[in-house]
Amino acid sequence: MWVSAQVALVITADRRPDGAFGFRMFSESSTIKIVLYREVAGEDGQRKRVHVEGGVWSARDAGGLKRRFAWTDRVRRRELAWFDTEMSTKYGTNAQLARLQAALDDVATHMADDAETRRFLLEVTVRHNGREPYVVHLASAERAGAGS
């Protein structure tokens, strides 16, 4: 039973973004660079993208008070909270992108006091096994009540 379970986990590792339980050591040599943006309403009512430097931003809460927020208030792991710098993807590009999307959704859900940000966006520059870089855009769900 043990061996069958292990074999099944190894064979199905491709179906999991992080290849967990599949023993796929050093599967890639890819890097990513993460840039965080907030989508807010501009003075003209149009949406605009604001670069979040170092994962820290200020925004007004529902009472109109300016408050400080940080990505690391919710996302503590370094590999998901290191912005504007190229870094290795230990468990591969797919794993990193899946985790970043989940982190983005988590931040969007839990920053209840930020009444300005309508969406969080990540611009992820991926260099897969040393090839030419390409950009992946990730977006959180629309934040209910923000910017209204």
Partner: peptide, 20 residues
Amino acid sequence: ASGGSKLLDPDWRGGLVLAD
């Protein structure tokens, strides 16, 4: 699992992963 997945990956097999 480790050797087999590398064998099936053309980037690994061809040396691209190691070279990078």
